[in-house]
């Protein structure tokens, strides 16, 4: 065991897989020599050489497209898109070419690729660095979408993602890279993709969240405890495929739920989660499932970010609404 923050755990996942599998290659803009703009790949080029860990020209579509081509020849690319807003440049290659490869070829080819990208608000970054674009990804058939919330999960999920024979979009929240440390095994281990985690048990209401919002939800749950409301918090970890079973099990116990997402409200992950709750657990609900989300604006200017992002107070308010429905 070693104490690692999430960035170090992510780096360690790449390190153990570069070691375990000669087909793993790590590349992107500035990931080589300096080890990434967030140092998430720091030291990897030194340890594994320029052949395995390398810098690319500044062109996201080609980074993703080259990964698809390398995947056709049995390689397992871990391609980094420097900031989430730049995935628009690479969307054809990520969400059409990689995601459809197995289907289009009837299984002859596949795309065993991980597309890593940092995202997430609260760090006063420049435009298009922090948007929550998971909603675009989760309506893409053929890709898996992972958003870890802590160092232990990040390493286990990234190792699993690298070993997965289908493409994975791996979103790393900027505000969690250095937020806290945790015991993380030094060897390789995996966490099953598509499995949620109950991070706080409760009996009165279920709060479903992912990424940074897991921690915001736990803070809200602590607040709610003071007024006697016992909230259960679920960390989804994977958004696609969604672990509806864990959600339904929790709702059968609590009969109430809210979903928290950092993204703007309309057509995001929360909408899909609520639809699936309706399909699978409507008879267990005492109140409608509410969303806590950003307003439907473009991601806010840095100066107003703190007010825009969901916070514990808004979650407490939403929980009180479903409790008093």
């Amino acid at each position: 065991m070693a104490q690692m923050n999430m960035k170090e755990a992510i780096r360690d996942a790449m390190r153990v897989e570069l070691k375990n599998d000669p087909n793993v290659y790590v590349f992107g803009e500035d990931v080589g020599k300096v080890g990434g703009v967030f140092r998430a790949t720091e030291g990897l080029q030194g340890e594994f050489g320029e052949d395995r860990v390398f810098d690319t020209p500044l062109a996201e579509s080609a980074i993703a497209g080259m990964a698809v081509g390398m995947g056709l020849q049995g390689f397992r690319p871990v391609a980094e898109i420097q900031f989430v807003g730049f995935i628009y440049e690479a969307m054809d290659q990520m969400f059409i070419q990689a995601a459809r490869m197995r289907y289009r070829s009837g299984g002859r080819y596949n795309s065993p690729i991980v597309f890593r990208t940092p995202f997430g608000g609260g760090v006063k970054a420049a435009e298009l660095h922090t948007d929550s674009l998971e909603g675009l990804a989760i309506q893409t058939p053929g890709i898996k979408v992972i958003v870890p919330s802590n160092p232990y999960d990040a390493k286990g999920l990234l190792v699993a993602a690298i070993r997965d024979n289908d493409p994975v979009f791996f979103m790393e929240h900027l505000n969690l890279y250095h937020a806290f440390r945790q015991d993380v095994p030094e060897e390789a281990y995996t966490i099953e993709i598509g499995k949620a985690n109950v991070v706080r048990e409760g009996s009165d209401v279920t709060i479903i969240a992912y990424g940074l919002m897991v921690h915001t939800a736990v803070k809200a749950a602590e607040e709610l405890e003071k007024s006697g409301v016992k909230a259960e918090v679920i960390d989804l970890r994977t958004l696609l495929p969604l672990d509806i079973e864990t959600i339904v099990t929790s709702i059968k116990k609590t009969n109430r739920a809210i979903v928290v997402q950092e993204a703007q409200k309309t057509s995001g992950a929360a909408a899909e989660i609520i639809a699936q709750i309706n399909e699978n657990a409507i008879l267990h609900l005492e109140a409608p499932v509410l969303r806590v989300a950003g307003p439907d604006t473009v991601y806010p200017f840095a100066q107003v970010e703190d007010a825009w992002l969901p916070n514990p107070a808004r979650i407490v308010k939403a929980v009180n609404q479903v409790m008093n429905f």
């Binding site: 497209g65 081509g69 995947g71």
Partner: peptide
């Protein structure tokens, strides 16, 4: 064009 580039990288 990008797929061929990646295949060539693998070669």
């Amino acid at each position: 064009i990008l797929h061929a580039t990646g295949v060539a990288m693998a070669f």
